[in-house]
Write a protein that binds this DNA or RNA. Sequence first.
DNA 1: CATCGTTGGTACAACGTTGTAAAGACCCAG
DNA 2: CTGGGTCTTTACAACGTTGTACCAACGATG
Lengths: 331, 331
Amino acid sequence: MATLKDVARLAGVSVKTVSNVVNGYEFVKPDNRRRVEEALATTGYRPNIGARNLRRGRTGSLALVLPELSIPYFGEMAGLVLEAAGEHEWNVLIEQTLGTRDRERATLAALGPHMIDAAIVSPEALHARDFDQLDPGIPVVMLGEHSVDVPIDHVGIDNVLAATVATRHLVELGRNRIAAIGAHPYRGTATQRLEGYRTALTTAGLPVREEYIVQALNYHRRDGADAMAHLLSLPTPPDAVFCFNDLLAIGALRAAAEHGVSVPRDVAVVGFDNNEESAYSMPSLTTIAPDKAAIAHSAVDLIRRRLKGGQDLEPEDVQTPFSLEIRESTR
Amino acid sequence: MATLKDVARLAGVSVKTVSNVVNGYEFVKPDNRRRVEEALATTGYRPNIGARNLRRGRTGSLALVLPELSIPYFGEMAGLVLEAAGEHEWNVLIEQTLGTRDRERATLAALGPHMIDAAIVSPEALHARDFDQLDPGIPVVMLGEHSVDVPIDHVGIDNVLAATVATRHLVELGRNRIAAIGAHPYRGTATQRLEGYRTALTTAGLPVREEYIVQALNYHRRDGADAMAHLLSLPTPPDAVFCFNDLLAIGALRAAAEHGVSVPRDVAVVGFDNNEESAYSMPSLTTIAPDKAAIAHSAVDLIRRRLKGGQDLEPEDVQTPFSLEIRESTR
DNA sequence: CATCGTTGGTACAACGTTGTAAAGACCCAG
DNA sequence: CTGGGTCTTTACAACGTTGTACCAACGATG
């Protein structure tokens, strides 16, 4: 692999002159410039980004820390973050935490300020206090989960409001036994969505029945199916279900079918995330559709802002838009 | 950020001694070791990976080049590659090509040998000759697509055989009007799967009817739905369909439902890839299930082999196992 | 007591790049 | 032809790390 030194020797100039040509420095004699450019071409020189970054004190990479790429929501988000970061010539290094708190902490600690300029973190199990002890030394943006106590930039949608909208939609269909799948002991988004669900019910004058609130420790399709099976076995099963993400909803659809329950006639189902697959499920799934591209772009923008502005900027909390996508599962 | 120099000053030893402690060198006096470790702790020292790699002549990163993370198959593969690479302490840098040939070429050329030690490429549109002119200067492993002409390591399943198995399964159900969705003018895997489809039909003594072979320029759900709609509008519609990936199959399921055609009674459907969602579709999808973890591990192993062994190793072609996952869509 | 091998430590250079400072070439006005 | 400025190029150091070479003790061996 050719280095500046090789090119310089070939062109008969100093290393620095070659560097100057490569970096578009103005004052280079046409004659030398030509010779350098020829030498660059014949050697096929490519700058050593690592060395350049060492010198410049930056890395040119971002980390994206998320639970699992195989989960459609994160796969889609990751793709969009890659696009948004690419627009500013950042490479993106992806780390999976598999949703465990230890690994989220370890990852954040290990990445340190050397491999990456900043990190975009989509925490699953992280507590606010995990960030206190941490100080990763680089800007961090949180996606989704919102820890109000910690002074960290954050992007996400208004989960309480979105959950209210989803639940109200079910109320407006005339359903009055509305269940929720996805309650979780310490996951922040779960708490917020549950709050929105409760608000919508009480606003509509409907009772909040605790047996209609089903926990899901994971948010996979299987958990949704289990939860739905449980709901359908109740003495008075619900006539509508709000699932806290689309995977739970997809599982719920299957459980309903296996119990011979028709969706949406017997039970209406609403999901959350608008995964691509949800437009093709049978029936297709009504769901809260966050503007994922907006989330990705906001996250990258927050990072750029903080890299320019420094530590002492006020942490910002960007709320991105969402919509309710109405499909067959509530029609 | 603390450097070795800072730690050395604090501990009252040379930089190199600190380096030795950090790297677990054996012969350090207990007394010094203790002082260094204290200094390491109080400064919170973390090695500058960039500098270390510059010195060592490696980068510690792999690139994973694939069409799109939002496509479930690639999301799942990416997750597994991350895991496999992590076992050897590689970071993974993901690049999306969006399936365009220009961007595949550009990405491969740009990554060069500085940012990464090697690349795992899942080509979509790349021709064999694109690699000829290229010589990225680092080991490259190809996933899936198999360009026999180019001396590059490759991992994948036997597409011809897998397609034969899938098609034969439909034959054994007693179907004799078996269609194929996913033919493609120059995509290698498409050609191979089509070949397997043809072989299975002729082996079974069934005619290959060209009107039952439907092109798909993209492999998304929409394309599968369109293709299926077309097939169902034929004078004699097929009684079985082999789709070249699961997304096409999911689209086909929906089109069938919209045409009031029952799966599997009227039309049996087989997919390819075993996406996680395919176990939960309605009906659940019979599909070819490649051992994705094996693919990921083989790819990483091939890279390690070549980084050790050098350029002159014979290119290897690893065939990973697959199975036929039989579900409701053919039951 | 001289020699040797082992253990423990250090100084220096180098990886490839770029910022700094300074030196050299050139041109024009006085 | 001198002085001053502008253009052009260069040597050097530095980013943080580690490999190499070397030095200094030390106890053991002859």
